[in-house]
Design a protein around this nucleic acid. Structure first.
Lengths: 353, 353
DNA sequence: GATGAAGTGTAGAACGTTCTCCATATAACG
DNA sequence: CGTTATATGGAGAACGTTCTACACTTCATC
């Protein structure tokens, strides 16, 4: 029997479940049972099989597994890798998955809804066990339709009414409120929000949520007018809009930016145009990206702990894969990281210079 | 026959190649032939089949495809998503793949060699058609061993002697030379390189290549001593080392940083410690990341066009998948983007302020 | 001593493709 | 009209798993 094995190996054929079975002197079904921790396996059998697996270096084919049952892979869909928030989410996902037998495969859909759909379909076609969609742009009905075929958890998609899938979010309304409250506490009253251009983001997007929070906090602070400026995403219109904002005679005293990406560029342009931060203009960003933490930049920002969101989403997905059907909607509370762009005195300590 | 189809659809079963075959009134083999553009298909047959595919919205199962033949998926392995160089590479890969029938799946191995191996194995187990490894840490022999099982192209891995796989690189030696030449041209003679901590990176890594280029250019410039300082990767030892460097009495007049990541942190700490850039210390980084371009940062940097590398690697991989066996080793020439950190006068124009 | 239950192992049909033969039809040629 | 080539379509085995259904022990129970 070992002779047969050797011949197979010499032919450089793949080690399959069958190779393991013959090597261990048991049936294919038995090996499969051991692999899956299924019921009805004696200790003796398990030992024989695990020994054979060890000896042959057997790895089950994910393709074949997917065809019949589980593939033990979860798909993560990103819309854009450039956003500094995303690596954190991935780290969270990988962290939770590492000790399990699941593995993550990431798809990147560069800004096109078309590609987004086809990537989800691809992942379904791969028989992945579940999907984590990060800030998808698809309407809720479409996601719900996919969710019939495969367990789905979204991150950064505010649809607490969804019944077919789970949502995991930082409370973006609250985050915006915290930003406004911090600005108010520093004595600023003349506050404007810089948000994302009109066409981007539907009601469920994080951007719109932050706008809602901004308006509410302003209202509460007794500031009825809660002006929201829109910045286009694409260069150079983006920079043009910011320059125009900075040059305005009635430029507000403080600004809340929907994202660090924009806030940091704004700081940069402000420096170039001689607008002092925070003396002339206080700025609070969103995401607490690593760049914001740099001494050079020193941008106060709302931290939403992408890593934690990734962890929570992954745990939710696994529980859904393992049978849960009632949908869950989780909201984490973000926090402010104060730095020089908000008020010089305060964070001078924190920054160490 | 349409009645049968309807029943199947009502049962909400998956549309398989068999569904398409019965709907079109042809055999399963015929549908497969059409899908694969195989020889021996009449126009009439092709039309019937494509109509049925259209009508039923058929998508072939990638899992099943992988089990038997091609999966039309290529795997991309990243060691760390935080590096600003990587999104560019991905964008390049996706750009080339978009018009084809291939799709990319990305795996992220967070810094552990163990995970790196197991992710490659997973991708093989998925029967992916080829792999792009970005800055892998594995030794060449191991990669070669994998390359027997699956076409592999590496990016950011200098092993021009490899025969089993292709390599695509920016010429990191040349990049370092360009940086040194620029510093020399500005009149600096007292130049040090800040490189990555000892244990990181084997001889084939981009870091070591940049060190070689640095030494050669210094030699050529008549500067025999080419000091190379090592900065640990992990905080806070990383920042400590930089502070120590900045505080040194014999601190050099100019520094070449192996990566923007370190260069930008260095700029930040320099500001905090009152070291003026470029008056007291000129800095050239590597990667030309988007942060380097910010007016606030204004870091001169070597641009290696990750996007282009991604495109080239993808084309190389596809040609290998389609049968090429002779290995290719491609070297792109990087370029310098001059900014304020190199010399104030020059890039003041470029920055627009 | 028959009956049932519990525990352990196997046979073999799926899963949805690809791809190698093989069969048939038509055309070309002597 | 027989022979051979060429074009077109189909049958059915494989790919490597999972999982249902069943067979065989062993042991307890009536």
């Amino acid at each position: 029997m070992p002779v047969e094995d050797k011949q197979k190996l010499q032919r450089n054929e793949r080690v399959t479940i069958r190779t393991v079975a013959t090597h261990a002197g048991v049936s294919v079904a038995a090996v499969s049972k051991v692999m899956r921790n299924a019921y009805g396996v004696s200790e003796a059998l398990r030992a024989k099989v695990t020994d054979a697996i060890e000896a042959l270096g057997y790895r089950p084919s994910r393709a074949a597994r997917g065809l019949r049952g589980r593939s033990f892979t979860i798909g993560v869909l990103l819309i854009d890798i450039r956003n500094p928030f995303l690596p954190e989410v991935i780290a969270g996902v990988n962290g939770v998955l590492a000790p399990s037998h699941y593995q993550a495969m990431i798809g990147v859909s560069d800004a096109r809804v078309q590609l987004e759909t086809s990537l989800i379909e691809s992942m379904i076609d791969y028989k992945m066990d579940g999907l984590i969609l990060v800030a998808p742009r698809l309407p809720s009905e479409i996601i719900a339709k996919f969710a019939v075929q495969i367990p789905i958890v979204t991150v950064g998609y505010h649809d607490a009414g969804a019944t077919a899938f789970d949502t995991v979010n930082a409370d973006d309304q609250r985050g915006a409120e915290i930003a406004v409250e911090a600005l108010l506490a520093c004595g600023y009253r003349d506050i404007e929000m810089l948000s994302l251009g009109e066409r981007e983001g539907h009601a469920v997007s994080v951007v719109r949520q932050r706008e809602i929070g901004f308006r509410r906090a302003m209202q509460r602070g007794g500031l009825g007018a809660a002006p929201i400026g829109k910045i286009p995403i694409a260069s150079p219109r983006r920079e043009d809009a910011m320059r125009k904002f900075l040059a305005r005679k009635d430029r507000p005293r403080a600004v809340f930016c929907w994202s660090d990406l924009d806030a940091i560029t704004l700081l940069s342009l402000a420096m170039e145009m001689g607008v002092r931060v925070p003396e002339d203009l206080a700025v609070v960003g969103y995401d607490n990206s690593s760049t914001a933490a740099l001494g050079l930049v020193n941008l106060a920002s709302i931290d939403q702990s992408g890593r934690e969101l990734g962890q929570i989403a992954t745990r939710a997905l696994i529980s859904r894969i393992e049978g849960r059907t009632a949908s869950e909607h989780i909201l984490q509370v973000p926090s402010l990281v104060s730095r020089n762009s908000l008020t010089r005195s305060r964070s001078a300590k924190g920054a160490g210079g």
